[in-house]
Simulated assay, not measured.
Amino acid sequence: MTSARGLVAAQSARFASLDPLLPPATEPPMDGHVITAALADGTRVAGVVSHQSFEPHSTTRLWSTAEVWEMLPLVGEAQGMDALLTRFRRHLDSQEVGDDTACVVHWPSRDSKAARAFLDHGLVPLSVLAVRLKTPAQHVSRTLTIRRATPHDLETVLELSLAELEYSSYVGSTIVRPEAASTKRRALTERLKNASPIWLAERDGIAVALAECAIVSSEPGTMAAARLPRGRWGYVNCVSVLPGARGNGIGQQLLAHAHQELHRMGTVGTYLYYNPPNPLSSVFWPRQGYRPLWTVWEVRPASALR
């Protein structure tokens, strides 16, 4: 464990040099499979591979494969990602790998040298975690009525959420499974019942857009602490504009309102996941002030890792 702690400390220092918003590297999970690799100069790097299976009807299976092998690299200051991914591939040779599977690595978006290794091994930047720090409110001309959604809006919220799910399935990690509607309905019913921060934008009394958000605390011991700076964050889970209403500034108006309200709740900033292959979100989100912090490198099925 001394070696692992040394790698974690060195990796934390490297993260800080790459991007000041990155939290320190985390200790590896105790229940994962440890892999190691030796570099040409004698330096050793390591990784911890965890394996997760997600039950049918779980919300996770709407944006993930049923089984995921995720590697947490511990390369310290070394450029050892290529060697580590080779060892990851060998580890998979001892596993039963089906079709509904993936290999995943979360890694700082600004590490361009590591990106070369990911691409060479068949992984693609399917998603990014992007952040936006709290800024002074900007005036956006409003032509819509924007209000909080209530349990009475369930069917409308569900329709807009499923529209985003379907579109994202063509350009990202989302999977439209047979149980998608029932799974979404169950989750949204609970969120609306708990008065979660969800907003609808209406034009002439008709809902044309949805912003489904949440409040997430990044504190020691929380899952968010591995990805975000400390503090209270607004999470933008889903923004959906009906196809016939896109291109009219509706999403910008709705998001400006959501940002303002989330900041009133004491958040230091907001974050979200978007898909770089998505021709809409890859343009829209940077224009709203978001920039990548982590890239989710993924290959499906897992057996396609090179």
Rank of each mutant, 00 (worst) to 15 (best):
L39C: 03
A37E: 02
L200Y: 09
V45T: 00
F118G: 04
R306D: 11
V97D: 05
E77R: 08
C103E: 06
N237W: 11
L254R: 03
G221N: 00
N275V: 00
H33C: 10
A117Q: 04
L144G: 01
Y170I: 01
L255K: 03
L242A: 15
L72Q: 15
P73S: 01
A115G: 12
Q52M: 08
H263W: 15
A187D: 12
L188N: 07
W294N: 05
G98R: 09
L126Y: 04
P20K: 03
V48L: 05
L21N: 11
G247E: 04
A211G: 10
D31E: 12
V75N: 07
A46K: 02
T222G: 07
V48K: 00
I250M: 12
S281W: 09
C238H: 08
L129K: 14
N237K: 08
L21S: 12
A201R: 02
Q52P: 00
Y290E: 04
T189V: 00
H152F: 11
H106E: 12
L158D: 00
D120R: 15
D82T: 11
G172H: 06
S112N: 10
D120E: 11
V157W: 03
V208K: 01
L144Y: 04
E212L: 15
H33P: 02
P292Q: 05
A10M: 04
A16S: 09
I206T: 12
S282K: 05
S12T: 14
K134M: 09
S281Q: 02
T43E: 14
V124T: 12
V49M: 02
R44I: 11
F88E: 09
A83C: 03
A180C: 01
P56Y: 00
P197F: 01
S109F: 09
D19Q: 03
R14A: 15
V131S: 01
V283K: 14
T60H: 13
I198A: 10
V157L: 07
S64A: 14
L160H: 09
L144I: 01
G122F: 04
I250Q: 08
W297C: 02
M1I: 10
W285L: 02
R185M: 06
P23W: 03
W233Q: 01
W69K: 01
G80H: 03
I35W: 02
I215A: 03
K193Q: 14
A46E: 13
A115T: 10
R264V: 03
V68H: 03
P277T: 08
H121S: 07
A16F: 01
S127T: 10
Q253T: 00
L62Q: 10
G234F: 04
S58N: 06
C238L: 15
S17T: 13
T36Q: 15
G172R: 06
D31N: 14
R148W: 08
S58C: 13
G172N: 04
G205Q: 06
A302L: 06
W294F: 13
N237P: 00
L293Q: 14
F15R: 15
V157A: 05
S64F: 09
L293N: 05
H121R: 12
V131E: 05
Q95Y: 04
F15V: 02
V283F: 07
W107P: 12
E77G: 15
H263T: 05
S3Y: 08
V68N: 12
T60M: 12
D111M: 06
E159S: 13
S281N: 07
T174K: 04
I250N: 12
